[in-house]
């Protein structure tokens, strides 16, 4: 397997608290990788340190053998690593279309086909083009956040809890679109989820985090059947 994004022994501190303590992961090209774990395990911090929204103090993050540790958030985006932050950070007072255009901010080429592709994936966004993003429903906002991330033509798309606060039916929609983007466009997906069951179902490979370290890793299907994971994150229903 060719490794595109490689994280080695990553440490992040918030003030005196160590949020990450030696996290190592590898995200191979074209796969769906998921990172599951409880609140405060350090999942979001891992993503934020890849996109440089927080600065790790030790460790290494390489992408195609290039060290990313000292790059700015802008330079990370330029390399095609796109972060869709937790909690649907859409731009509420801008229209849906403007939100999509901002996604392609660093691109100089023609973005029309990508807007069309986003509209094909999320037809509702086409109907809502001139509506302010703040007036969309929660599910639509999440769709917009994902679509906006796709507008940057990502090679690696990192999604932080896209299912947060959404109805089960909409979660299913979003997950199927994540799979579709992965299959159709060959975009590598790094997915954070609390909803471990759904995430492990679509993932090729999964990591389980606990208090700043990777506790377990394995193929998605193996982790779903792992007793420890079942007990901690999946609950009895998964049996």
């Amino acid at each position: 397997m060719k490794n595109t994004l490689e994280i080695k022994d990553l440490y992040v501190r918030y003030g005196g608290i160590e949020a990450l303590r030696g996290v190592s992961m590898s995200i191979p090209e074209g796969k769906i990788i998921t990172l599951v774990g409880a609140n405060g395990a350090g999942k979001s911090t891992t993503l934020r340190s890849i996109s440089k929204l927080v600065k790790p103090y030790k460790g290494s993050i390489t992408y195609n053998d290039e060290e990313l540790l000292n790059l700015s958030p802008k330079e990370i985006v330029e390399r095609g690593i796109i972060h869709v932050p937790e909690g649907r950070h859409v731009f509420p007072d801008m229209t849906v279309l403007e939100n999509l255009k901002i996604g392609a901010y660093l691109r100089k080429d023609n973005i029309k086909p990508d807007i069309e592709y986003a509209h094909k994936l999320f037809p509702i966004l086409k109907d809502r083009s001139n509506q302010l993003a703040g007036t969309l429903s929660g599910g639509e906002q999440q769709m917009l956040a994902v679509a906006r991330g796709l507008m940057a033509k990502p090679k690696v798309l990192m999604m932080d809890e896209p299912s947060l606060g959404l109805a089960p039916l909409i979660i299913k929609d979003i997950f199927s679109i994540i799979e579709r983007v992965n299959k159709e466009e060959g975009v590598t997906i790094l997915l954070i989820e609390q909803n471990a069951n759904a995430a492990l179902k679509i993932a090729d490979y999964g990591y389980v985090m606990e208090t700043g370290t990777i506790e377990l890793e394995g193929l998605g299907s193996d982790l779903r059947n792992n007793d420890h994971v079942k007990e901690l994150y999946l609950g009895r229903a998964a049996e």
Binding site: L53, K74, H83, V84, H89, I102, L106
Partner: peptide, 23 residues
Amino acid sequence: TSYGRALLSIREDEVAAQAMGIN
């Protein structure tokens, strides 16, 4: 222009703007 939109996006949500590669 896209520059104007970038300014608006900073007003709306700094984290998301940064995640979109806006300096």
